[in-house]
């Protein structure tokens, strides 16, 4: 192994590492690392209309309206909310009070989010159905609210600041 060859290998290695770092950096800058924004993120940042992005949170209880294959629902993070309209099939896990991520664009007036894809999100807790039922019956069921611990990060991030509480 001569010196020139060895140098070549190390250059190749450096290029591979740099490429890898570059790909990750690019993904980060394009916002791919932030897979979705919460309604509060959107309220704070403001979004260009027509730009494609994802919004995530919980499906607000009692907010789902269905008409054929079309449905409308509200995504909430406990602080802010976003009304979503969507036509198509939703995953089996889609239901009120569950985590959800909608992909699409804001309406021209910026009030309604037109989703072309809806993904369900679940938390990290697993239990048999009987246990869940008995927790609900005995009133020990922890409803998904931003104040609960053990909730997904996107909710914990936007805990109501103390001064904002009544």
């Amino acid at each position: 192994m001569n010196r020139r060859k060895r140098r070549l290998y190390f250059i190749a290695l450096g290029v591979i590492t740099l490429l890898l770092a570059g790909v990750l950096l690019r993904a980060g800058m394009e916002g791919n690392i932030v897979f979705f924004y919460s309604p509060t993120d959107l309220a704070e940042k403001g979004i260009e209309s027509g730009k494609r992005f994802r919004v995530g949170g919980l499906v607000e209880e009692g907010s789902v309206e269905r008409e054929g294959t079309s449905l409308a629902f509200t995504i909430t993070d406990g602080l802010n909310e976003m009304r979503v309209v969507y036509t198509g099939l939703v995953p089996d896990l889609f239901r009120e009070g569950q985590g959800v991520i909608a992909e699409g664009r804001l309406d021209e007036d910026g009030k309604v989010f037109r989703a072309d894809n809806v993904l369900a999100r679940h938390d990290e807790n697993y239990m048999p159905p009987e246990v869940a039922d008995s927790l609900k019956e005995t009133g020990q069921w922890q409803h998904a609210t931003p104040d609960d611990t053990g909730l997904p990060k996107f909710l914990k991030d936007h805990e109501t600041p103390d001064e904002a509480r009544p």
Partner: peptide
């Protein structure tokens, strides 16, 4: 660290 589709650790 980031908002992900994947849930957090169990």
């Amino acid at each position: 660290w980031w908002n992900t589709l994947h849930q957090t650790t169990t």
